[in-house]
């Protein structure tokens, strides 16, 4: 649990645990409502043909986030 990076930096196929959402306002609400609360396991599934947005497996659903939004989620790599 040492190194903290943002969600958008993870490569396809990697898994991480959410540490904190650093966004404010509506974006923060949205991300939390998607289930990105601390301790949640997130898997990077794929990137769109041009690299952005990125699709994640969040609590069983595949959700696409734009790179800059994913950059607001701090995670620590898992496994």
């Amino acid at each position: 649990m040492s190194d903290t990076i943002t969600l958008n930096c993870l490569g396809n196929g990697s898994i991480a645990l959410v540490k904190e959402v650093v966004a404010e306002g509506l974006t923060r609400r949205r991300l939390l409502d998607l289930g990105l609360v601390p301790g949640t396991k997130v898997e990077v599934i794929r990137r769109s043909p041009v690299g952005d947005p990125i699709a994640f497996n969040i609590r069983g659903a595949v959700i696409a986030l734009r790179r800059e939004v994913a950059g607001k989620v701090l995670v620590s790599p898992w496994g």
Partner: peptide, 11 residues
């Protein structure tokens, strides 16, 4: 600014 955007890719 473009707002945040989330999109589900359903099964």
């Amino acid at each position: 600014e473009p707002s945040s955007f989330t999109l589900e890719l359903p099964p």
